[in-house]
Design a protein around this nucleic acid. Structure first.
Lengths: 203, 203
DNA sequence: GTCTATACAACGATAGAC
DNA sequence: GTCTATCGTTGTATAGAC
């Protein structure tokens, strides 16, 4: 579609006076768009639109769509807050806190971002690599480092698989009654598995 | 639609054998392409090419790409074979057989189809609905119907979540060492959870 | 003046619709 | 088969910083 006659704001060409943070605004817009639409669904033009700049700025500042994507994944969520909520307390009940916490986070967002993230992971190796490193080194990695006696990486993978699967079935597949079950039911059902993956005996 | 070539000889009674089955060939081609490339990755032209017909046939027979997609999902895999391999034997060891069986299936395909399926589920409501019904009514549904004492749907969802998550982390995310772990290790680690979801006590 | 940030235009590719 | 829309990308002119 051609630009409509009513322009929302004729953007001037040339360098902006003052400190314009185009790069930062592109990053912010990219996080939203990638989260909402996945890697394929998000378009460079739309991200640039949201940032209020031209699409060419993506190439200028990042080199392309993929580079923008990886750059935007630097801090998807705040791990400090998450870990501060999970780690303190009885180590024998950390499985319950993990399940409860992820349910709370995903319930709030409605599952859209989770579906977008899964879609990105499944369709783009770069996204899979990013998420893999993020889960292993930051999210689950720090949990197992804090509470697991051995085999930290394997435990992290098992724990991630259980949490990921629960999110997928509940929020993406929307499989009933799991999709509508309350937190207490799911915590009681799933937490023992998480607890065993984290602190229980492993082969 | 073009009929088979005019053949010399006496006129046959009844339905003519070898009539062109454009619709069926499109379905078959669509299953392969959708499985290999996901919904977005598969193109109407390529499916039609594989079927040996013109792309316009997709519109003619199905009405569009999405309708072809849903139609192609009718029978993704053969559930009879799967269940015949899992159900017989000690009910207390069915968890082990479930894990072993899915690992074998997915190891053989290398995870590509799984990634494509996950991508389709995450990006298309129609795919999610299809898979939900397929899992609930056919795959896991028959397992819980055979071995679970109660709460069949919840148990099916929990079981599906664990299996799905394991496949996602192992084949799509490729999270080590889980991605390279042998079957025995994963069966020993995951089967107890599956077993509890299927036959154990639930809240 | 030089350099950099910016917007605009247009290109080649591709996919879906008609 | 053709048409149209849209994608990511690139080239280029311009406005302002230094």
């Amino acid at each position: 579609m051609v630009a409509a006659g009513a322009q929302p704001g004729p953007r001037r060409r040339g360098r902006r006076p003052g400190g314009s943070d185009t790069r930062g605004q592109l990053l912010e817009a990219a996080r939203v768009e990638f989260a909402e639409r996945g890697y394929e669904g998000a378009t460079v033009r739309r991200i640039a639109d949201r940032a209020g700049v031209d699409a060419a700025m993506v190439n200028h500042w990042f080199g392309g769509k993929e580079a923008l994507f990886t750059a935007s994944l630097d801090i998807p969520i705040d791990p400090v807050e998450l870990l501060a909520d999970i780690l303190p307390g009885d180590p024998e009940k950390i499985g319950e806190r993990v399940v409860e916490r992820f349910l709370t986070v995903w319930d709030a967002t409605g599952g859209g971002p989770l579906a977008a993230m899964i879609q990105s992971i499944a369709s783009h190796d770069a996204a899979a690599r990013m998420m893999r490193e993020f889960i292993g080194n930051v999210l689950v990695g720090r949990i197992v480092a804090a509470v697991s006696p051995d085999q930290h990486e394997l435990r992290a993978g098992l724990c991630g698989a259980q949490v990921f699967g629960m999110g997928m079935v509940r929020y993406v597949l929307k499989f009933e009654p799991l999709a509508s079950a309350d937190h207490a039911t799911l915590v009681a059902a799933v937490a023992p598995s998480i607890q065993r993956y984290l602190t229980g005996p492993l082969p």
